[in-house]
Write a protein that binds this DNA or RNA. Structure first.
Length: 956
RNA sequence: GGAUGCUUAGCUCAGUUUGGUUAGAGCAUCUGCCUUACAAGCAGAGGGUCAUAGGUUCGAGUCCUAUAGCAUCCACCA
């Protein structure tokens, strides 16, 4: 096949993928005699699109998968998508509002859910299409969706079983409430943000004529949330606070409301903070809730679902039961106001009544909902909880005893610290999109849990005339994804896939979802999946945690910052205007659009050039070191695209020179020293790459490959082969041996690199494998064998010989460049002081040097032989000299020699001081001392030579 | 407040687990080359007191202690 001169990946990548997929090559081999290797893809949001994080993680997963598939393992990459409850519902609601000016309530639950399914059909394929472009070799025939039938069945099963085991319960407790989305959210979905605020100091008048010990008729209470005083049920002071001891048990008149509230003693009140008096609002603050429980205070909910002031407070007793122990009165002036409007109004009124003592600036960190983006409100509601503290114990053990390993290990600590203080997990959401909770209520509010209404009736022996209503809430998205590794394999049925592929081998994911997902997956899986001996089964053996991909300045990539890079744009390229349009589309703040457009135009004046999938994947691997965040660098991508081009052209060279030959397996005797050298290096490269993949060090994988291909195979070996293939002295057998080695190594390199760069390697492999009889039946590198160390032989002698040849060539090139002699001038260098072995090597392999350094001969001269004026440089214990005739610039040469002398003198000095140090000589290992001695000797020899050369120059 | 990570060349990063010649790579820079695989290339060169201060050691980028700066996570904030 004729190859283009320039590497143009867009010409073949997509077609290649299509062929693979159509041939069903991504499926497991289901061969039970082979080891199993499986990965469950962290399910992306079904309507999402591929971002750099996905590309990064999927590249790593695909590399692992392809490697194991080539090893012959029974390999499954299980894929699928997540319904992403809140996120998806929000997108569709926004669309509905924008396009039809409707809310979900206008449509009703059923119709709204229909709309979401439609939206999913319509835009759900984006990310899976993009994954294909990335080369991800997932088994598409097994694709799952968290809301599909099988997975929904698993969710029901898990919920019902956990409920029956009392590991799920329903309770009225304080939860994080998102007033914008009007749903409860879990602790993890709360983000604390630092905001500037105020501290208001409010006077609470003492009732019944009581005075404090210092004669005041009020307590001064500091708060950052004055509006919540409508729900105050006490003011607390510390039990040992002498200032307030006398008023504990007395009553206060709640400002603006007039309700009487007690002064209670509780350790929550800190004597050193604020005034020492703290207002207690049990229904709207987590600490106050705990105080309320301890002091048996009533709880007053003053807010509606969307955080407006209620017309009348909801009053509950300490147990959370409706109660009328205190008045539910809320002053009319505040009813129906938004919580922040109410705050302003109340502060104004307090001021007017002289009850506002003063205001201070105060920085506080305020909890925000991570999706809704508004401050969350602690609210007293009925919700469903998982007893995470119980499920968490075995999950900690599994990591402690090594059944699950985090890579890098430092994430283990992060995991423990969270797991050791595990709060119960609030799993109910007041949304419509998601798995509906399988709970029914009778008219008295009694709850029944089973897989469906029919089962409820039989399970609880309910008469057919008992009226049942299903719980309207749905489950947290992470509830279904916590079951991902086993629900996708067919659980609760006992499938062969579960037996073959569970536990999965590795999980590749970002640190940001260790708590959301990884920890919960471990808990759920270990509870439901058991080994044959009944011990809990873990979901995966290794968790490889990746860092975040940031922009070149280290900022998080985000739509609002306009610094997002789409992996597909790097693969296929994008022009400047399209990139700008993409980055500024649908901006929340239109004024930002202009800024972003400007910056983008400056940074990408020509848009982004196509780089191809392989270059992107290789770059991602090269950057994947040790789980730290990555600052994305376009230059790096350019560099590795060039590397692809290098491979491409090296292959062109091989094909151009060898394709006419009929290759046969050569005899060892016909191999040149260069052939032996590259085979020996190849062996080492295979060993290194294999070890690095097993250690999850993809940066080392990339570096080893880069180094071997570019620096050994291309820079040296290809040049050596020219000397043989074009020589009239080499025999046909020798030419065959070299040509065969060229192809054999290239073919093996393609297999070595294939897990990282699937497309380029397939293309070249299809052309090289047939030449040496390695093409398989299916004509694909995908299931060709991964190279093994034993495929190639080590040859230390050849490596040493080649190193000497390289040194000679490099030294001559160096002298040529320093003396500014044109590369086209043939030189006739001399060598003085070379050992017999070196002389033999140089003579035997002169053909290689001739080419590489453009010389016509090397003359070996004796130490005392008188020579014409030369420039020279030491090489080991020997010396290379080049007669310069009138080309020598005397002053330049003296300067150069003096520089070398200075360096050598410094080295000798430090070497001598080291070796004359009694302590060093007596304590350092012999090997180190020998090394230092040898180095010192070498430096001295070289100094002598350079010194002599310098003298000669000066006398010229 | 608790914890973790980072600080190495102009830029982006390896190297630190297990201390040992003159600390590496890519990009960028400088010089010379269109040499029939590749100018997305070839050859050559310059550039780092490894954040700071102590300590351990014959020997520290690597181990220990402290400090500074940056980042992240958790908790708290009347």
């Amino acid at each position: 096949m004729e190859m283009d001169k320039i590497y143009t990946p867009e010409n073949f990548e997509s077609d290649t993928y299509k062929q693979w997929e159509e041939a069903g090559l991504f499926k497991p081999n289901y061969d039970e005699s082979k080891e199993s290797f499986s990965i469950a893809l962290p399910p992306p949001n079904v309507t999402g699109s591929l971002h750099m994080g996905h590309a990064f993680q999927q590249t790593i997963m695909d590399t692992l998968i392809r490697y194991h598939r080539m090893k012959g393992d029974n390999t499954l990459w299980q894929c699928g998508t997540d319904h992403a409850g809140i996120a998806t519902q929000m997108v569709v609601e926004r669309k509905l509002a924008k396009e039809e000016n409707l809310t979900r309530h206008d449509l009703g639950r059923e119709e709204f859910i229909n709309r979401i399914w439609k939206w999913k059909e319509q835009s759900g394929g984006t990310i899976t299409k993009q994954m294909r472009r990335l080369g991800a070799s997932v088994d598409w025939s097994r694709e799952r969706f968290t809301m599909d039938e099988g997975l929904s069945k698993a969710v029901l099963e898990v919920f019902v079983r956990l409920y029956d085991e009392d590991l799920i319960y329903r309770g009225k407790r304080l939860v994080n409430w998102d007033p914008k989305l009007r749903t409860a959210i879990s602790d993890l979905e709360v983000e604390n943000k630092d905001v500037k605020g105020y501290m208001w100091y409010i006077k609470y008048k003492l009732a019944d004529g009581v005075k404090t010990s210092d004669g005041k008729d009020y307590l001064l209470v500091a708060t950052t949330r004055p509006e919540t005083l409508l729900g105050d049920s006490a003011v607390a002071v510390n039990p040992s606070d002498e200032r307030y001891k006398s008023v504990v048990g007395k009553f206060l008149e709640l400002p603006l409301v007039g309700r009487k509230i007690p002064v209670v003693a509780d350790i929550h009140a800190d004597m050193t903070t604020g005034t020492g008096c703290v207002k207690i609002t049990p229904a709207h603050d987590f600490n106050d809730y705990a105080v309320g429980k301890r002091c048996k205070l009533p709880m007053l909910n003053i807010l509606t679902e969307d955080a407006h002031i209620r017309d009348e407070a909801e009053v509950f007793n300490t147990l959370g039961e409706p109660s009328d122990e205190v008045s539910s009165y809320i002053p009319e002036a505040y009813r129906g106001l938004d919580r922040f409007e109410a705050r302003d109004k109340m502060v104004e009124d307090l001021k007017a009544q002289g009850l506002l003592d003063h205001i201070e600036d105060h920085n506080l960190s305020q909890p925000y909902g991570d999706r809704g983006g508004v401050p969350i409100e602690p609210m007293l509601t009925d919700q469903w909880y998982v007893r995470a503290s119980v499920l968490g114990k075995p999950a900690v053990e599994a990591v402690k005893d090594g059944r699950i390993k985090f890579v890098p290990a430092q994430y283990t600590n992060m995991y423990y610290s969270w797991m050791n203080d595990l709060q119960d997990w609030c799993i109910s959401r007041q949304l419509w999109w998601g798995h509906r909770i399988p709970a029914w209520y009778d008219d008295n509010g009694k709850v029944y849990v089973a897989r469906n209404e029919e089962e409820v009736r039989s399970k609880y022996k309910l008469a057919s005339d008992v009226h049942l209503t299903r719980d309207p809430d749905v489950l947290d998205t992470w509830f279904s994804s916590a079951l991902w590794t086993f629900s996708t394999l067919g659980w609760p049925d006992n499938t062969k896939e579960l037996k073959m592929f569970h536990p999965t081998s590795a999980l590749v994911t970002g640190f940001d979802i260790i708590f959301f997902w990884v920890a919960r997956m471990i808990m759920m899986t270990m509870h439901f999946m058991k080994n044959e001996d009944g011990t809990p089964q873990v979901p995966f053996k290794t968790v490889y945690v990746t860092g975040l991909i940031r922009d070149e300045e280290g900022n998080k990539m985000s739509k609002s910052k306009g610094n997002v890079l789409d992996p597909l744009d790097m693969i296929d390229g994008i022009d400047r205007d399209s990139l700008i349009a993409k980055r500024t589309a649908n901006m929340m703040q239109p004024q930002m659009a202009e800024k972003i457009a400007k910056r983008t135009a400056k940074q990408f004046p020509d848009g982004i050039a196509p780089h191809g999938t392989d270059a992107l994947r290789f770059t991602l691997c090269a950057l994947a070191s040790n789980g730290r965040d990555i600052n994305w660098d376009m230059k790096r991508l350019d560099g590795y695209r060039n590397f692809c081009n290098k491979i491409w052209n090296a292959s062109r060279f091989v094909l151009m020179n060898v394709s006419e030959m009929k290759l046969t397996k050569p005899n060892v005797a016909d191999l040149s020293v260069a052939d032996k050298f590259i085979r020996s290096k190849m062996k080492k490269a295979i060993a290194d790459v294999t070890a690095s993949i097993n250690a999850f060090r993809f940066d080392q994988v990339a570096n080893t490959i880069y180094e071997f291909i570019w620096n050994e195979y291309c820079d040296w070996y290809l040049e050596f082969t020219k000397a043989i293939l074009k020589s009239d002295k080499a025999t046909a057998e020798q030419k065959n041996a070299t040509a065969y080695t060229l192809v054999e190594v290239l073919e093996a390199v393609m297999r070595l690199v294939h897990p990282v760069m699937p497309f380029l390697t397939q293309n070249i492999w299809l052309q090289t494998a047939p030449m040496i009889g390695k093409l398989n039946e299916q004509k694909t590198i995908i299931n060709a064998a991964f190279p093994q160390e034993s495929d190639f032989d080590e040859d230390k002698k050849a490596e040493a010989d080649i190193n000497f040849i390289k040194d000679v060539a490099t030294t001559i090139r160096n002298l040529r460049a320093e003396m500014k002699v044109s590369p086209s001038v043939k030189l006739a260098p001399m060598m003085r002081g070379a050992s017999a072995v070196e002389q033999a090597c140089a003579q035997d392999n002169f053909a290689f040097m001739e080419n590489l350094a453009n010389i016509e001969m090397i003359k070996f001269v004796a130490d005392n032989e008188s020579l014409p004026p030369c420039t020279s440089k030491p090489l080991g214990n020997a010396e290379i000299l080049i007669p310069m005739k009138d080309l020598v610039n005397k002053e330049e040469e003296i300067k150069r020699l003096q520089g070398m002398i200075d360096k050598l003198v410094a080295n000798i000095k430090s070497g001598e001081s080291k070796l004359s140090n009694e302590a060093f000589v007596s304590k350092a290992p012999a090997k180190i001392i020998e090394g230092a001695k040898a180095q010192l000797e070498l430096n001295k020899t070289q100094l002598e030579k350079v010194q002599a050369q310098l003298n000669e120059m000066k006398n010229l």
